[in-house]
Computed example of a mutant assay.
Amino acid sequence: MNKQRLFLFVPLLTFIVLAIFFWRGLSLDPNAMPSALLNKPVPAFELPVLPAQENPPGLTTANQELLKGRVSLLNVWATWCVTCRQEHEFLNSLKAQGIPIYGVNYKDNDEDAQTWLTELHNPYVFSVIDSDGRLGIDLGVFGAPETYVIDKTGVIRYKHIGDVNAVVWEKTLKPIVDSLQ
């Protein structure tokens, strides 16, 4: 008889355990995706640059060495990404403020990307073509847009998932960029 009474508490205990896990899950920040590359150099790459850009003479490929020397942003974008379109105007305003931004055109059509940059203006120092997504895999990209803060030595110091806008810039990215200057 005592075993039957104890058995009645099993559903209650199960509910309590599940409630604890659920509560813990709700307290997590869905945008806080860990990155294995934090405090590590930008992965090595050699990719073609979108030709519609104002590249230095003879620049046909880019590599991680070009990201060294100044604090910069590395922005993963694509024309198929609706959120990328929303953030694009703000990236242009950051360029006007002198913030160097490098682009990774992620799994996209080159012609569409060239048209995008021509019509919406180009916020990037240059943007590499990652048509097969290998650089994205090396960076640990979950999807576009994603933005990385790169220090003067080419090391990733922060990863932001989602669009960069005035609030994200002022509250999160700008303090990090300023601290690295």
Rank of each mutant, 00 (worst) to 15 (best):
L117T: 08
P43D: 13
L74S: 08
M33A: 09
V10R: 01
S35G: 07
M33K: 14
K171L: 10
I137K: 08
L180N: 08
G103D: 06
Q181Y: 04
E89G: 07
S179V: 01
L91G: 06
V167P: 00
P123T: 07
C81R: 01
K159G: 04
Q53M: 15
L173Y: 02
D163C: 00
P57H: 00
N2M: 11
G69P: 12
Q97N: 11
V17W: 03
C84H: 09
L91S: 07
Q4W: 07
L94Y: 04
K68P: 13
A113F: 03
Q53H: 04
V177K: 01
G136P: 11
E87F: 10
V141L: 10
I176V: 13
T60Q: 14
L73Y: 09
P43W: 09
A52P: 00
R134Q: 15
A44D: 14
M1P: 08
Y106Q: 04
L18P: 03
V149M: 09
A62H: 06
T14F: 15
Q64H: 12
A52I: 03
V164P: 12
A52W: 00
G25M: 08
W77H: 02
K95G: 07
G58C: 08
E65Q: 15
A96M: 04
N92W: 01
V128I: 15
P51D: 13
L94E: 12
S72Q: 02
V167W: 01
V168L: 04
N165I: 05
M1L: 08
N2W: 10
L173G: 08
G69Q: 06
G143F: 07
E111K: 07
W77M: 11
R157K: 15
A62N: 07
L50V: 11
W77F: 14
P145S: 10
A19M: 14
M33Q: 14
T79D: 11
S127F: 03
F126H: 08
K95D: 13
N75I: 03
A78Q: 02
P48Q: 13
I16T: 10
P30R: 10
W77V: 02
V164I: 15
N75P: 05
A19S: 15
L8D: 00
V49F: 02
E65F: 01
I137P: 00
L117W: 05
P43R: 07
